[in-house]
Every structure is written in structure tokens, then in C-alpha cells.
Amino acid sequence: MNIFRLAGDMTHLFSVLVLLLKIHTIKSCAGISLKTQELYALVFATRYLDIFTDYISLYNTCMKLIFLGSSFSIVWYIRRHKIVRRSYDKEQDTFRHHFLILPCIILALLINEKFTVKEVMWTFSLYLEAVAILPQLVLLQRTRNIDNLTGQYIFLLGAYRSLYILNWIYRYFTEQHYVHWITWISGLVQTLLYADFFYYYFHSWKNNEKLQLPA
């Protein structure tokens, strides 16, 4: 495993921890999109089907279990926890996330490396992950005041995606036959979605101002 991949996994892990920290200690999910969290739970559930069939490493299995466990517990917190659910901004979080799922299913059925149930599900999870952040970004645009933890959560997610691209570039030059168009293109699309957010994040950081996105 190269340094970019490890750093990518760690920023991904930290992003989830920051979010859980916010929800668990402050008992608030203000500014967090339930739609995006539900999509992530679906992404992990469909991607990690191989957890029982293919053993890669202890690291791999542990991380998969952490991402599955954390994503479903975040959804549980926002939907069911009696204090946390009160802070959920239902009126603002209106993105029709179900409409993202069907195109991803169709695309996965049409464009995949192998037409098997596991492979199509895996490909579906890549396509869905690419667009899963959209409800969160839309909610962010509507929320006038973005708190620090929410800003850091999205920044860490974007950092994770960027580091994975560096990881692919590194692997392309160091490993033989390492060409994965589906992973790369969906990963690139996903990272580009963060470009706008990054711009305003660094801008507010540089000027030492509170993060605010233009309406």
C-alpha cells in the first residue's frame, strides 16, 4: 500500500469520526444531509459484499466493517435518536436522492467489467458514490452558517477523494496492468464535485473568516 492510499483511507476515516463526534457529543446533526448519509450506507452495503467471500487483509476487513458500521449508525442517529433527530433540517434537505439511484443502476448494468451480480453491484456502488455528496452540497448552499465540524467533514471527504487519485497515478506507474477506467472516471467526477467547495473553504481559511458559500 502506498502513502497516498493510506493517507486517503485515513482522511476518509477521520471524516467519519468527525461526523460521529459531532453527532455523538454535541447531539446535533444540523447541516448534515440525511440523504447523502443514506446514499453512503447504500454505497458501502453494495460495495463490500465481498467481505464474506474474498479475504484481502485484516486492514481491509476492519476498514470495511468500520465504514459499514459508521454509515448505518449515522443514519440511525439522524432518523431514530430522540435528541439528534430534532436538529435534522428536513425542510432544507430536499434533494430527491432516490432519483440518483436508478441512473446508477442502469449505468452499472450497461457499463461494467463483468456481468455478474457482485460485479454489477460493485460498479453501482462506484457510480453512486460519485454523486452521493450532491444532497450534502445542495444543503450546504442553503445553510447560511456552516459550523466548523460540518466544514471539516466535507473537507476531509474531498481530501480523501483527491488522495485516491494520487494513489491511482502512483499505482499506474508502479504496477503492471493497472488500468481501471470505471474506477478512475467515477472517482474523477466525484472529486471534481468538491472543487467549488474547496475554493470557498481555502478562501475562508486564508482570510481567517467563517466559511460561507454564495447563494
Binding site: R5, D9, H12, D50, D54, I56, S57, N60, M63, K64, F67, E113, K114, W122, Y164, N167, R171, E175, H177, Y178, H180, T183
Partner: peptide
């Protein structure tokens, strides 16, 4: 080879 390298990623 049915285990493509990308599958070792998360």
C-alpha cells in the same frame, strides 16, 4: 484473474 487490483481498495 477474477480479482482485479482495484478491489483491494476501499
Amino acid at each position: 484473474d477474477n480479482q482485479s487490483p482495484a478491489k483491494d481498495e476501499l
